[in-house]
Design a protein around this nucleic acid. Sequence first.
DNA 1: CATGAATGAGGGTTCATTCAT
DNA 2: TATGAATGAACCCTCATTCAT
Lengths: 223, 223, 223, 223
Amino acid sequence: MVDRTALPIRRRRHARPQELLDAALSLFIEKGFAAARADEIAARAGVSKGTLYLYFHSKEDLLQELIAQRFSSKIAISFHVATDARASLDMLREVVATWRSALIEGDAGGIVKLLFTEARNFPVLADFWMREVITPTRLLVSKIVKHGIERAEFRAVAPNSVVDALVLPLIAACLQRHAINPHASSDGTPCGHDDLNSCFELVLEGLMDRPAERTPTPTRMTA
Amino acid sequence: MVDRTALPIRRRRHARPQELLDAALSLFIEKGFAAARADEIAARAGVSKGTLYLYFHSKEDLLQELIAQRFSSKIAISFHVATDARASLDMLREVVATWRSALIEGDAGGIVKLLFTEARNFPVLADFWMREVITPTRLLVSKIVKHGIERAEFRAVAPNSVVDALVLPLIAACLQRHAINPHASSDGTPCGHDDLNSCFELVLEGLMDRPAERTPTPTRMTA
Amino acid sequence: MVDRTALPIRRRRHARPQELLDAALSLFIEKGFAAARADEIAARAGVSKGTLYLYFHSKEDLLQELIAQRFSSKIAISFHVATDARASLDMLREVVATWRSALIEGDAGGIVKLLFTEARNFPVLADFWMREVITPTRLLVSKIVKHGIERAEFRAVAPNSVVDALVLPLIAACLQRHAINPHASSDGTPCGHDDLNSCFELVLEGLMDRPAERTPTPTRMTA
Amino acid sequence: MVDRTALPIRRRRHARPQELLDAALSLFIEKGFAAARADEIAARAGVSKGTLYLYFHSKEDLLQELIAQRFSSKIAISFHVATDARASLDMLREVVATWRSALIEGDAGGIVKLLFTEARNFPVLADFWMREVITPTRLLVSKIVKHGIERAEFRAVAPNSVVDALVLPLIAACLQRHAINPHASSDGTPCGHDDLNSCFELVLEGLMDRPAERTPTPTRMTA
DNA sequence: CATGAATGAGGGTTCATTCAT
DNA sequence: TATGAATGAACCCTCATTCAT
């Protein structure tokens, strides 16, 4: 909406812009874009309100920069998991573990929450989510699953169903953590880390061709 | 400005608050609470701005009323699925199908999206979500799973992992549909209905003790 | 501001308009013109808000009507106290007593409070006050005082000073009663009736030529 | 919109709140609290509407601050008139003269008008008026009068009657000046300064025990 | 006549953005 | 570069006024 090519504004001197982006990200996640106030962002970055506008043209510009700089580095993890010699099961486990450490244990989950929260106000977010996150992830998981089916490690299931069964719980857990848990009386903490792990194992069990030798802990099973 | 001759006014007068609630709900879902303007809510309900305040004290009151009236009736579906004589597997399928028709095919999914979007600004929403939706649902699914394990229909897994594997994909699909899909270029429509179904079946497969007796839907395809 | 000659609107059927005027007057006195709401006026008159506009064009019209109908009858008491054979002192006492019963004990005092409160927003009120109330009163008292001086009943003082000394305390007491007393913690109720009486007598003493025979109660002194 | 080059900005910045308070006070006096618009207050202070809210939380906050800061310093003149060796008559004259210069000639009279106008909407004003102004004043005057009576300077009258006879005309004159005079066609300017003076002398005459020793100002004129 | 739901202009208040220092 | 006071558009909400019943 704003022509950002007109005045590039000298940015990125010192760490100031990065601190502002961090502050903006955390506030956007906490309160949403519309409810986050510019003063508050500046205050959280330790600068005055006017300084914010030395580095960014507008509040919306902050969001655009966040998408361009932070999201891609934190979220759009490009997996280079080639369908190598390892067991497909382990490759899936690795993918899931990587995601879980980024989304649930790391701080990328907040970005996911923000993406879902603001996607309808800023379609570019929806595009980003689909293009940079979902599509590559689904392709990757699909590739592994197909590879596993070809090598008879997995049953012949629709790859998309595996993608859904593995990726969707992650997303939901991530949103639950950043949207609900901060305020809910934490009597029954759902979607804990261990729960998610056993959830994934349950799905992987359903993928396996041989129900024998089942063990709750993820035991390596060579072909 | 709006053609109000369609319905007799007497009918409409009594329905006014509900129309305003509907308009508010759809706008809150679309833009979030903070970005939804009172004028817009009124306009969508076919009335002027002032009329809104004949029925509701404030914009926030609209949200409170939505929680009290709409959410509980649309979301907090109280399952009366007694652990009856049926197969536990079928009971789980019924629960999941009920949720899917309400959240994905029906219009309750928007409420879920709103709950996640606004929970941090309105903690009462987080409480509602946990108390009325998540906790009962987890209890119900847990009960069925335990029952199935006792009757040796299921493997001995942690009930919570089944809950996560079945409920979290639903939530994520619901959010995907209401947050991302409306604006994303729908090239690869993910989380479709069929996908979700096969996702659930995959999970249920992982639950079953004897893969030989698999249900007809996902036919085994040997390589 | 509103052309009231255009549509006279049938008024004064039954007692409705009078009830509305009464309600408006009391609310104008209590809260001032700007802070008095039309709903409240109608409610106090026992009718609905719409009914008010059957009889009056606007809220301001209510005030205009009050001035025309109520004020003149309640406030602008036309004294016909001819300088008759009575003692001037008694004539002054009668004037003061008449005013006091109307302003302090009666309900005309509220109108005075309203006049002072709204005179700057509605100059017509200031004009009314000067033309209908103050000027005639001052003339009357002046006449009596001059008459008394001529007949050697009074000392030779400036008539205006007597007017001020008699009329201003009345006005102040009237405003005190309607503006301050309703809410002030009535520990020391000032400007009581008895106080005012002795206040007037004190002034009249200052008028008298012969300080002898002074008595606290207003004894008649024949010439 | 306003010529702000007149004063150096640095000077003005520090004076901003006071300028806003002054503007608010004058507008509250002119139109009353409810009819005074925030834009107008800001404009009169030479700033824009938003600036007002940099210094005050709300319009009502402006009134509260006025009470706390301006009223007490302008109105609640603490008299240190000890009952010294001077004649009680002169002490009364001094008190009255002080009040008159503050209320009639100075700008404290507007505050009195505001107090009377808004007391019913803001009871704190009524309390302030009684506690800070009326009660101390009455006590002071009473003390002087009692002292004068003890020393046989005055007749034995009820002190309260003297209070009323001296204070009430001042209040009324003050209200007349700020409520009525600004708009009334000033044909007969009532309550002038000279009038008030002779009014007070008339009252004091009534107080004196021996009319023979009357003070020079009102010379006796025998018929 | 009477009602009260509906209107919409207007007021109080907020807050993204600018700019003089 | 950094500040924070100033701005004013835009919001939420009120309430005088209208009008269909």
